[in-house]
Design a protein around this nucleic acid. Structure first.
Lengths: 147, 147
DNA sequence: TTGTAATAGTTGACTATGTCCACTAAAGAG
DNA sequence: CTCTTTAGTGGACATAGTCAACTATTACAA
């Protein structure tokens, strides 16, 4: 597998470039008073609807003890509730309260806004080109995971 | 500016996807025993050749006191040397020692290897497609900065 | 069914990473 | 020569994340 050195340099340049872009896009999360990690937890629960702590640990790849503390904090803040379920007394079902759901929606809307800002000033044609490029990259690089 | 909701969702999906990829690519740095931030400092000095601490603070957007401590550590580890320069007695010229330069080259080589691994299993044609897509994204989104 | 292993979660202690502020010393500006 | 700005350092602190020990419960195999 010989790859042109210029291509490697370009990909590394792209990675540096895109890292900065992602950083800027994520910054808005901090306005909520929660960290990126806490936001990820809220969003994941929003997507899952209901889950147990261990699901979050697996999906988000966060340490169990750290997750325990994050959940405790978000519960204390009234964003989550834990419901004991008879099936397994070791666990609780976690879900968003209405306050948590509101934050979840706010995070989603803000993320959407950030994407709009990202491509602001470009024509619809250019946006479509970027879109197609992203889909291509993801398709090609994602495929490799399954092998 | 109306943007198709599906495109926004796709871009957000791509961002999540690519964040994970970047995370995996960066992980190799930790094998050196240095953090990503310390590695960024070493690489930047490698690129600049010679610089003063404040240059690094500006370019890498790292707190001055934090930078001071990072430089002190890297000096203690024999990766950097500070040379007093008569022109301005407040500052020192910082540069890599041969040991530091070796690490700099190692970091570069490993980063290149990671890119090769990233696209491993793809045909040359597919790699060229990815490359072109990245260039397009960067060109379109980079242009927006200058406005 | 009983002993053993595995799983879910919690807590304490710790490390790593990063931030804020006050300070010294030198340089630059008027 | 004063006053302001700049470069760097160090103390104290904050935030983020890790590691290991522990309890309680469940799963499983003999």
């Amino acid at each position: 597998m010989n790859i042109d050195e210029n291509i490697i340099a370009d990909i590394r340049r792209f990675n540096r470039f895109y890292t900065n872009r992602l950083c800027v896009l994520d910054r808005h999360v901090l306005d909520t008073g929660y960290s990126l990690t806490e936001a990820r937890v809220i969003i994941e629960i929003g997507i899952m609807g209901q889950c147990i702590a261990n699901n979050l640990v697996d999906v988000l790849d966060i340490d169990r003890s750290y997750m325990s503390r994050i959940i405790a904090k978000l519960c204390k803040d009234g964003l989550l509730i834990k419901k004991k379920v008879t099936m397994d007394n070791r666990t609780s079902l976690i879900s968003l309260t209405s306050k948590g759901a509101a934050l979840y929606h706010q995070l989603n809307e803000r993320s959407d806004e950030q994407i709009v800002r990202l491509v602001q000033g470009l024509s619809q044609k250019e946006i479509k080109e970027i879109h197609a490029s992203m889909l291509l990259i993801q398709k090609k690089l994602d495929r490799l995971e399954k092998i």
